[in-house]
């Protein structure tokens, strides 16, 4: 895993409160990195530090192997959560203006913009005023402006807000495509379902601290608590009896599924296996006792993990 962006022990204080407290994280190259956390946790401050808008009090940022410098900003595309366009300007002119501020020449920017406008099916908007656009339409333009200069690092803060499901999906695919082309994406959101869909890695920030980091799979598995769901056909009592002597526990809630599936003569159990090395022997016993249909690990949703982790950290 090659690290593209490295945040090293960043601390940032504002008058009266600490926005970031000794936060470190590593963003691998070419992945979508979810930056999660409750409101006011310090995400926006961290993003602003990466964007060189504010400077940290302590700590360092490494960008593509060297300390972050103001010149790197040209290699970053940032779509802030709070975003706006000049209302009285025309869409095309405005997109050109932002592109030029990112260092593109006028001709280059025009060519690329035309391509993107066609891609998003908005060629007809070029000469429209921004005030005539709906929120979702304006968001599309902003997305284009963010990625137009083909930066190595893209930062999206709540990119899907204001989009209908169809356009949100379009945008999601664009983000994944940009990643596949080699861009590194930082993705900040409260929408956990979209995190599961697009993120490869995540970091959870709560109360100015990094409380959870890792690849999405790792994080979800580590929060799984080694719970497995067993679907089977056969006698439940005999299975429970057979499992009694093994290093695993039955979970009470699992029995509910039993009643529902009576007609299909299919039953389900939720069991907890403490140690990974015991999984095989447990499966063997189950397989010998009943007709095993499904055996899978129950992986908690990001939503559950988020709430759990924040509650646990806040309680400390």
């Amino acid at each position: 895993m090659e690290v593209f962006l490295k945040i090293e022990n960043i601390t940032k204080q504002f008058a009266g409160h600490t926005a970031l407290d000794d936060v470190s994280l590593e963003v691998p190259r070419g992945c979508v990195y979810g930056l999660l956390g409750p409101n006011g946790a310090g995400k926006t401050t961290l993003i602003r530090i990466i964007n060189h808008i504010t400077a940290p009090d302590k700590g360092r940022v490494w960008f593509n192997g060297h300390p972050l410098s103001p010149a790197d900003v040209a290699n970053i595309g940032y779509l802030p959560e709070e975003r706006g366009l000049y209302k009285t300007m025309k869409v095309g002119e405005q997109a050109l203006y932002f592109a030029q501020l990112k260092g593109l020449s006028k001709a280059e920017a025009t060519a690329r913009l035309k391509k993107w406008f066609v891609k998003f099916g908005i060629e007809g908007w070029w000469n429209k005023k921004v005030s005539e656009l709906s929120k979702g339409m304006a968001q599309k333009v902003q997305f284009i402006v963010t990625v137009l200069h083909e930066p190595q690092l893209l930062i999206f803060d709540e990119p899907f807000s204001g989009f209908d499901p169809i356009n949100a999906n379009l945008l999601k695919n664009e983000i994944l495509e940009l990643r596949d082309k080699g861009a590194t994406v930082i993705f900040s959101t409260h929408n956990m379902a979209s995190v599961e869909e697009v993120c490869d890695h995540i970091t959870l920030i709560n109360k100015s601290k990094n409380i959870l980091s890792g690849s999405l799979d790792e994080v979800r598995r580590s929060h799984g608590g080694n719970i497995f769901e067993v679907d089977f056909r056969g006698d439940k009592e005999s299975l429970v009896g057979a499992l009694a002597g093994l290093p695993c526990g039955l979970l009470d809630e699992s029995l509910i599924a039993d009643e529902d599936k009576e007609n299909h003569s299919e039953r389900a159990l939720k069991i907890h296996i403490e140690r990974d090395e015991d999984v095989r022997s447990v499966v063997e016993v189950i397989n010998n006792t009943v007709q095993l249909r499904t055996f899978r690990e129950v992986i908690p949703s990001m939503n559950d993990i988020f709430i759990q982790a924040v509650a646990k950290h806040s309680a400390k």
């Binding site: 964007n51 779509l79 802030p80 959560e81 975003r83 706006g84 000049y86 501020l101 402006v145």
Partner: peptide
């Protein structure tokens, strides 16, 4: 109008 937010990164 929050244009500022978009601008400050460039």
């Amino acid at each position: 109008s929050k244009v500022m937010e978009v601008m400050v990164s460039s």
